[in-house]
Design a protein around this nucleic acid. Sequence first.
DNA 1: CCTACCGATCGGTAGG
DNA 2: CCTACCGATCGGTAGG
Lengths: 199, 199
Amino acid sequence: MEVLKTPRKVNNGLVSRKELILEEAVHMYRERGYASSSVRDLAQKVGIEAPSIYSHFKSKEHILSQICFKMAETFIKGLEKAEKEKNTNNKLRVAIQEHIRVVLHHKEASVVMWNEWKFLTNPFHQDFQKMIRDYERKFENIIKEGMKQGDFRMQNPNTVSNLILSSLNGLAHWYKNDERSLKELEQEFSEIYLKGIVN
Amino acid sequence: MEVLKTPRKVNNGLVSRKELILEEAVHMYRERGYASSSVRDLAQKVGIEAPSIYSHFKSKEHILSQICFKMAETFIKGLEKAEKEKNTNNKLRVAIQEHIRVVLHHKEASVVMWNEWKFLTNPFHQDFQKMIRDYERKFENIIKEGMKQGDFRMQNPNTVSNLILSSLNGLAHWYKNDERSLKELEQEFSEIYLKGIVN
DNA sequence: CCTACCGATCGGTAGG
DNA sequence: CCTACCGATCGGTAGG
């Protein structure tokens, strides 16, 4: 079983062991889910024994929590960039662009965050929920603002916001990175959201 | 712990014990995920002992598989209804309408199907995958057809199809049933897809 | 549908 | 980072 002991990414000095564990965990939790992934299997993939995991993380849940919070922060940074734009059209455009970028640059971690955060217990659960709800609220506020200013057509802003966010997150499930460039994809999505699909 | 023994739905003769188990399983798997839901806990919710579950289902996996295949069939029936429409505009409209209906009438089961089907092993896994890929392919074909006939603007049909489907499935995560009527929601979604959000 | 029970595996600790 | 080990819980079976 030598093959199984080979880490996905060799520790070349640039990636710490702790980061290596996180990377393997993301890959594993994406494939099998957090609940059915054992600390033993994770350790084996990294090439160490199970108890050694606990010299880097206090518990199994701490591994998941680091993945979730790191991703949430990445999403939030993207949105902050969008909020610096002046008109709402550009705010929404950049918000969508940034969200796509984060999802596609962290495809596995993004799925893990959205699917597995429910397994966090307090205080992680509560803190994470606050962060993600804040993100969704701010995203929705851009839509609301645009409607008030007449940039967007009047519609239920909550519906619009949720529709956009769930379709963006869906990208992680079906998008093949080599199909076309990021720029093209962003253009495609914007076209659909802005002009619809009917001639 | 008497409270825990009370079934969510009393067996009144209209719902068989097997159906009761399935209903509790859907609720449980939606909340905690399939992998971290034990047969023991499920039995307790139904009000029987764990081994009694196995007089209704061959294994834990058979419970999940029945949930998944039932839902897949429901989605497929909706799409077949849509395909009977004559022009592609109506085909897409009905396909979206039916998908929304299925998601909202089976909100928990719909989430369970999409999140947990990956835990199925063969032959379940393969068979289910075939069904769901077929569904997605047929949905995409409506888009392709509409573009060929000039009803829809030329865009990557795969992108359009996946964007729509993931936003529809997202409904199960955020939609509160009492907010507004199904008709209104369908109208809202159609407006966004067809006309976009920009004035 | 129950009681009694099995081997396997789990997250995690002690101690070095 | 390791070996040795713990109590708890898992899916499932035997036999009635």
